[in-house]
Design a protein around this nucleic acid. Sequence first.
DNA 1: CGGTAAATCCCCAATATTGGGGATAAAGCT
DNA 2: AGCTTTATCCCCAATATTGGGGATTTACCG
Lengths: 211, 211
Amino acid sequence: MISILLFEDNKNLRESLSLYLAGTDGLWLSGAYADATEAVKLVKKYKPDVVLMDIQMPHLSGIEAMRAIKKVNPEVKVLIQTVFEDDDKIFAAICAGANGYIIKNPKAETYVQAVTDVYNGGSHLSPSIAAKVMKMFQNQFVQKEQTYVSLTQREKEVLQCMVKGMSYKMVADACDISFNTVHSHVKNIYEKLHVNSAPEAVVKALEMRLV
Amino acid sequence: MISILLFEDNKNLRESLSLYLAGTDGLWLSGAYADATEAVKLVKKYKPDVVLMDIQMPHLSGIEAMRAIKKVNPEVKVLIQTVFEDDDKIFAAICAGANGYIIKNPKAETYVQAVTDVYNGGSHLSPSIAAKVMKMFQNQFVQKEQTYVSLTQREKEVLQCMVKGMSYKMVADACDISFNTVHSHVKNIYEKLHVNSAPEAVVKALEMRLV
DNA sequence: CGGTAAATCCCCAATATTGGGGATAAAGCT
DNA sequence: AGCTTTATCCCCAATATTGGGGATTTACCG
């Protein structure tokens, strides 16, 4: 049973959504409110699994409300629903820790799917939103030619350890291999990345998102 | 009618997927191939609406194949399907212009949904992938808890040099100070950041956006 | 004026890293 | 059966880093 708390200022939509969610097997509607100013208190009271939050609300915006909720209960999943597809709203919502972002939809089943997805630890994005997010992603990282470097599994592991600031000894311990083997892997990594010190390798690894 | 071209090296999956897609109303399977080396030619020949591409293929990886296709026919939608959830693969796929990224799934309907979504100009991401993408997004733009550390001007300069992968000698040269002075600054930096090696300091500096 | 912070420089010794060899075993490919 | 890759291990010697001291100058603040 997934328990849900709904915030939606539009009376019509709130009531029809409530009706639908409450009547769906596997879902439990803990409450439906037109205002998010009390959101933190309500979350504390009902301990819902998922909060379904309209982005545009009087007094306190859905994003602000989510930020407040996440601050106190980071484990509560928040699903943003809205009619807005502005890049900046999407951006703000994601940065504030939204677990999903769906466009208000005539198809009620998408709500069930989205709620289930976020409840299970995934994220749910409406197709148009996903497209925008991926576009933003591309724009952000158009930068460097990814001269693709293929590190082996072990090499990646070792590199990951190095990024965590571990010394050869600690890496050896963490990967359960000998100091000498770590040394060998490091030599190979340096060769492949064309660097010759740990700090350089770490920076390059982060840049290239190899870890 | 949405026409589809399928690339999947696993015979079993290729055949069962072919069967399923070909038998679905509204979809038309133009072809199914185990190898993507001819992908560009095949796309030119069949002009599919959507290419369903496995990421791991012999000879030519799905991402490379997609890059080639997008170069010639940017309007063709490419849906990546894979068992991999590595950040770097997801990242590479998105940067190369993927229109969707789905985890190989026992539920065949998700394929139809995904194909339809990308055909309609949206993107489709499996929940776990969407979660990773949003996480990457957050990591990129939201700075972590700033336990404020006040580094002096010189210390910041030295740290910046270290992030560039420079050795003490090179830093000394770049800042026009002696090796010993660099050493002193480094000691102070390590003290302030509570670390005791260059890689750790670099990671912390990047995390804290001190540079 | 005295105190403090920043920046500069130096010495020493213990570790750690780097780069150069080389070797073996398992797995995969041709 | 050979070849390559990956992962594993070892030795040695040259550098580099780290951590512990201490010292001087400059500048700023009350």
